[in-house]
Design a protein around this nucleic acid. Structure first.
Lengths: 248, 248
DNA sequence: CGACGCGTTGAATGTTGTCAAACCGAGTGG
DNA sequence: CCACTCGGTTTGACAACATTCAACGCGTCG
């Protein structure tokens, strides 16, 4: 049996959290920043990306108030971002799955105004922003792609505003479940059976609902045979029913 | 007395809607895109900016479904952006005042997914996006500034999510009024007396409330001597009271 | 074992939405 | 000049959905 360290970096052991993987070999390259780049450009990107050890559950990736240096990509695991206002009320601003970029709200200022923590053991690529800017000046593809990523973030937030402002609690939760489902499917995981990385409280916080309401809706969805729920394990039994609820 | 046409373009007549003004002479240059640029860089920007005739009230600046070509800056007047979902429900996504950039949600796709209309007679600078991209490659300042603008848009949307998801109707309206007030003050207009460019319905739509609720709150605020309301004319009588309500 | 975090369930309350009607000012046409 | 309409706004009565408060169950960890 090989030495454990050798195992961790060997190709034969596809540990999703191993941090030796370059962008060109990363299985998320079709979703992530490399998406828009040619092979040699990916190598250039690769040179500025920093890959540290995985983060444990509840570990901060960055904290509000600290200096903004980088944006981040999830390689494995799941991340939540949140802001805390003057009264200490937390607002969850997003959940990020492998291949997704987070931390773009920090670009506007010299210091982070929100925080990011790992919802489960997660590995994350750190992309120093000033180096990304430099590289973007010589790679129009990359500049464009990053503009588009930020634009997509704006669209997502606008959709969330609409969801919270106009839809019932049921519709909100159904929409979130379908979002996670389809994002899982994109990552060639099951869209019908998955584990929610976040707590009920996080879900409620994100959707503008209380924990109790979220819990009741999970119960109701189960009674209506839309879902099978076992703690954080979700099985979607009636996809079309959920979609109807979510108005899609 | 000079000829009226001569008046319209003369320096002595500061008609806010006249469209001959270059970025370097624009009174919004301290808030808008030129903010980050040197004099000669502003000239380069100026060369790509297109200034058409003013838009009348209710006129579209761009429509969902049409090809995305440009982002826009408000020079005078006010603009609202909104998206319409599959069921025909409108969601107001933003109100934009002079010096503010809108249309950045279009960057992610080849076609607009939202629309923008003038809330009152407004002049608007059109900034063709592919030319802005090109220019950004040679002007790092500009690239950075535009990244920051987009980041700020993300932050605004996140704040709106928090506002709608966590705050009462009173808090939401108070916050919007204070936002408009301070944005007016930034533009060296009165922060205590101003005209709302949008309807009650737009306000409600934006804040996730019904028209009736908005109307009742205006009444309540007036009764509490926080505001003096005459149709769209607003006078803030008790700024601190409003701020307290808005938790600032 | 007991404490704790997290999730669930129940009952009561309340804020906001819904529905309906009336108002008001501006513009239009007889 | 008046009556009329029309869009935007206001007001009232009522209903409903989600919150609040409280209690409890369950699994984990010290």
């Amino acid at each position: 049996m090989p030495h454990p360290i050798a195992m961790a970096t060997s190709v034969s052991n596809p540990c999703p959290h191993r941090h030796g993987v370059s962008c060109g070999d990363c299985r998320m390259k079709a979703l992530c920043l490399p998406l828009a780049l040619e092979l040699d450009q990916i190598e250039q990107l690769d040179r500025i990306v920093q890959r540290g050890r995985p983060f444990q559950r509840d570990e901060y990736i960055y904290r509000a108030g600290t200096e903004f240096r980088s944006v981040y990509a999830v390689r494995s695991g799941a991340v939540k971002t949140f802001a805390v206002n003057d009264q200490g009320v937390e607002q969850v601003t997003g959940f990020y799955l492998p291949g997704e970029i987070f931390g773009m709200d920090g670009i506007a200022h010299t210091h982070h105004i929100s925080s990011a923590i790992a919802l489960e053991t997660s590995s994350v690529c750190e992309i120093p922003f000033n180096r990304l800017e430099e590289l973007s000046l010589s790679l129009p593809n990359l500049q464009r792609h990053f503009f588009q990523l930020m634009s997509r973030e704006i669209i997502n937030d606008q959709r969330l505003v609409a969801l919270i402002g106009k839809n019932s609690a049921d519709e909100r939760l159904a929409t979130l479940l379908l979002s996670i489902s389809s994002r899982n499917a994109q990552r060639s995981l099951s869209g019908l059976r998955f584990r929610l990385p976040m707590s009920r409280a996080d879900i409620g916080n994100y959707l503008g609902l209380t924990v109790e309401t979220v819990s009741r809706i999970f119960g109701r969805f189960q009674k209506q045979r839309l879902l099978k729920v076992d703690k954080k394990e979700i099985e979607i039994l009636d996809l079309e029913g959920l979609q109807e609820l979510a108005n899609v």
